[in-house]
């Protein structure tokens, strides 16, 4: 089968890696990464350094304190966020709060889907008594970052992909593979590598539609995939009317959640999903 690809992979990847519509980010992130590498740097010092960027500080604090991010009104300083959430989660959140600003209204469902998936990931990780629950939440938040980038950088082509998926009955990521030669999970991986996020975030984001192929952090990959699917099952998908595909059998085996546990998770997140339907990114500011 030789279908013509509608985007050139290599040049798109380069484009993604050059993305400049996230102005203060690269500089600050590399500084942040450097500081973390030095074991002598205290959380407090890092917090203070980050706080120098007023815009970033207020965005970060607004995101974590919004009713939809799990710490409503509880985190008052960047240092506090670092202590509660950990470096890697904070780094992911800084990225999130920046990238989601550039969305046009047709991508709002994607924003809602991301927040909801983050809630689901946290809830599932809690139920499974995982450590570093906040990192699971951030992986959920960023899992479809590749879709965000497609929306911003290739909106017309991406519309074709979604239409094609809808008419063919295939999944969106398979259709991306067919029409683009890569999928939004690949893009997520490229950009997260560029942002020097740790592998425990890169791999779940890059493998959330190919759980079996993940090169590590399998539990995180499975939870990210499951949280995405649960949210879609609950009507919080970024695109409506796409039936769920069965989850990878390995997840059934490794995530033995009981009916009671699933009930609890669903009960926890259902009202938030409902309330999210009426929100737009502006509401988080």
């Amino acid at each position: 089968m030789s279908t013509e690809l509608i985007i050139d992979k290599d040049s798109f990847r380069k484009k993604v890696e050059r993305l400049t519509n996230i102005p203060t980010l690269p500089n600050l992130l590399s500084k942040f990464t450097e500081m973390i590498k030095n074991p002598k740097t205290s959380m407090d010092a890092i917090g203070k350094e980050l706080s120098k960027d007023q815009v970033l500080t207020s965005k970060l604090l607004k995101l974590v304190n919004s009713a939809f991010y799990g710490f409503p009104g509880r985190i008052s300083t960047v240092s506090h966020a670092l202590v509660l959430l950990g470096y890697d989660a904070v780094k992911g959140l800084i990225i999130t709060s920046n990238i989601f600003e550039n969305l046009s209204s047709d991508a709002f469902p994607l924003w809602r889907h991301s927040i909801a998936s983050s809630l689901a990931a946290r809830s599932i990780a809690n139920e499974l008594s995982m450590q570093d629950v906040e990192e699971f939440a951030v992986a959920g938040l960023l899992h479809d970052i590749g879709k965000v980038i497609l929306h911003i950088e290739a909106p017309e082509e991406y519309k074709h992909v979604i239409e094609k998926a809808r008419t063919s009955g295939r999944t969106i990521w398979e259709t991306e593979q067919e029409m683009l030669g890569f999928d939004h999970a690949n893009i997520g991986q490229w950009i997260c590598e560029k942002w020097t996020l740790p592998e425990k975030l890169i791999i779940p984001i890059g493998s959330h539609h190919a759980v079996k192929d993940a090169s590590g952090f399998h539990m995180r990959v499975m939870v990210t995939s499951l949280s995405d699917m649960m949210i879609r099952g609950m009507g919080g998908g970024a695109e409506e009317d796409f039936p769920l595909e069965p989850i990878d059998p390995i997840c059934e085996e490794k995530i033995p959640l009981t009916q009671d546990q699933i009930d609890k998770i669903a009960e926890n997140i259902a009202p938030e999903i409902g309330a999210l339907q009426h929100l737009v990114p502006e509401d988080m500011k």
Partner: peptide, 22 residues
Amino acid sequence: KRFLNIKSDSILGKLKISLLKN
């Protein structure tokens, strides 16, 4: 409709049960 392709004895099948119960 959303759960058309999902077997009832799977994790997602359990979610469907939850949602209908809710």
